[in-house]
């Protein structure tokens, strides 16, 4: 884990109100695994850091995909090239992508696409045939980056691709990875209990000391999303007890 002042290197728009920012963070870029996140801090800014999946790692740089949902994300999107943001990471236990099997499907809802490029990279490296399933409210909300792999698109309003959710549009595969609103992940759990899903919770510290990021488990008790997650076996989470409160990936 590293704590650095990362320089903002650029920003590009990937869908309506959805942006990717590039940060210079060599240690994170070199070590990040699929599904891990960074905790970004702004000073001046909100008191607590904000967790973001690493979208891509390219040489010395990482990318983060985001939408302005509140003060912190709005401030991150207002940063200019050369500005500094405090970056703590990589954090959490990411996806477990092992060789064996032939196919992987990466199912996302809205901003849930965030951990998928690194997951696709690792799945390809493990010899798996990768298919992305992007879901969004409508065509303009789709981030359709898919790095050359096969893509299926689903929209709630039918304005692009399959009319319905990304979960409904997804084919079966040997490895199922999903990220999006918790209610979407609950649907994933219904269809593939063995799928690996990245959940969202409020986070205080991101490092396992505040116990704020509790994820209720089927077997009883709680786990910490920041250190034991954010990736879980879909069938292990008590979805009814996990609030779907975050604006993160507001749509499936």
């Amino acid at each position: 884990m590293f704590l650095t002042d990362a320089r903002v290197e650029g920003r590009r728009q990937v869908a309506r109100a959805m942006w990717v920012i590039t940060l210079d963070a060599p240690e994170v870029a070199a070590t990040v695994k699929a599904g891990q996140f960074v905790n970004l801090g702004l000073n001046p800014g909100p008191l607590l850091r904000r967790p973001f999946s690493v979208y891509r790692a390219i040489e010395d740089r990482i990318e983060v995909i985001l939408q302005a949902v509140g003060a912190g994300t709005a401030q991150l999107l207002a940063l200019r090239e050369g500005d500094l943001v405090s970056c703590l990471g990589p954090l959490g236990r990411g996806f477990e992508i092992r060789s064996g099997g032939r196919s992987a499907v990466l199912i996302s809802g809205g901003l849930g696409v965030a951990p998928m490029p690194v997951a696709a990279r690792d799945a390809r490296a493990a010899g798996l045939q990768v298919t992305w399933v992007h879901g969004a409210r409508s065509a303009e909300d789709l981030c359709s980056e898919s790095d050359g792999d096969a893509v299926i698109v689903a929209t709630d309003d039918g304005s692009a691709g399959f009319a319905g959710t990304s979960v409904a549009a997804a084919p079966d595969a040997d490895l199922v990875l999903a990220c999006g609103p918790n209610r979407m992940l609950a649907a994933v759990a219904g269809r593939w209990p063995d799928a690996q899903v990245a959940v969202e919770t409020y986070m205080g510290c991101g490092t396992g000391v505040c116990l704020g990021c509790a994820v209720p488990l089927k077997r009883g008790g709680y786990d910490l999303a920041c250190t034991e997650g954010p990736v879980y076996r879909a069938g292990d989470v008590d979805w009814a007890a996990l609030p779907s409160h975050l604006h993160y990936a507001a749509t499936a």
């Binding site: 909100p46 008191l47 607590l48 919770t201 409020y202 986070m203 205080g204 505040c210 116990l211 704020g212 990021c213 509790a214 994820v215 209720p216 009883g220 008790g221 709680y222 007890a241 996990l242 609030p243 409160h245």
Partner: peptide, 13 residues
């Protein structure tokens, strides 16, 4: 076990 989530909420400062 502790309490159910959400367990934390940010407030001004």
């Amino acid at each position: 076990h502790g309490t159910a989530p959400p367990r934390i909420a940010e407030t001004p400062s």
